[in-house]
């Protein structure tokens, strides 16, 4: 991101240009983000927990339906009867889908709220960085990086928890047949899908707050707390 151009402050006749760059290298951004996350560990854990809950619910529903689909596809009459009794529908029920979508929505709103609070709390820090020469993009990058790290952790843990719970409950219902007819590729896809959705949600959640932070003028940041 090293930009080079002539800065108006140099002597117009000078041969050599002042190196006009304002940069924040990636490893430094990462270092700062990790520091921020550590210093606000508890609050970050709350955000991550809400993500874990939502993603684990999604993974639970997806893998649960992988299990029933596997059993449905097995063609074994006694198992099919059990399924029918429990009201199985191919492709999962609409109600389930709604609950999943709702839980994801609630989670996103929670993330936006938490990130907005983080921005307010860090007004002074952001303003100071801008006084030191930070560009809008640096601030944006820091927030997105932090959200990504939260997103990765939350989604991984959530997908793992949801998958384990779904398989355990499946085994409770169908015994070992639950995993016998369960294709590994289906689980893989469901887990990846859950992780992807979780990660996406944290990015969607941070987008608006990060934009506010990035656009903030240093003077506004300096005025707070007077």
């Amino acid at each position: 991101m090293a930009q080079k151009k002539r800065i108006p402050f140099q002597d117009p006749d000078s041969e050599t240009d002042i190196v006009a760059q304002v940069v924040l290298p990636f490893d430094k951004s990462l270092e700062i983000s990790i520091k921020s996350i550590k210093s606000r560990f508890l609050r970050n854990m709350v955000t991550v927990t809400s993500l874990i809950l939502a993603v684990s619910f999604l993974a639970y529903i997806l893998i649960g339906s992988d299990i029933t689909n596997g059993i449905y596809g097995s063609g074994q009459p006694d198992l099919m009867k059990m399924l029918e009794k429990s009201g199985y529908q191919v492709g999962g029920s609409a109600k389930e889908r709604w609950i999943v979508i709702l839980s994801l929505l609630v989670c996103t709103v929670g993330i936006i709220n938490a990130q907005l609070m983080a921005v307010t709390e860090r007004f002074r820090e952001i303003g100071t960085m801008k006084c030191l020469g930070a560009l809008d993009s640096f601030v944006l990058r820091l927030f997105v990086l932090e959200a990504s790290m939260q997103g990765v952790v939350g989604s991984l843990l959530g997908a793992l928890a949801g998958g384990v719970i779904a398989i355990l409950l499946g085994m409770l219902r169908f015994g070992f047949d639950a995993i016998k007819f369960l294709p590994l590729s289906d689980i893989g896809i469901s887990v990846l899908y859950s992780i992807g959705v979780g990660f996406g949600l944290s990015l969607v959640g941070v987008f608006y707050p990060a934009l506010i932070a990035a656009k903030m003028r240093p003077i506004e940041a300096m005025r707070v707390e007077e």
Binding site: V22, R124, E125, K130, G133
Partner: peptide, 25 residues
């Protein structure tokens, strides 16, 4: 915006009443 950031970065140093150090660093 870029030139202003450059100005704040190189030409001017700011000292504040409230110090404004970055707390996590």
């Amino acid at each position: 915006a870029f030139e202003l950031a450059w100005l704040r970065n190189r030409k001017i140093g700011y000292i504040f009443q409230t110090f404004n150090l970055i707390q996590v660093m």
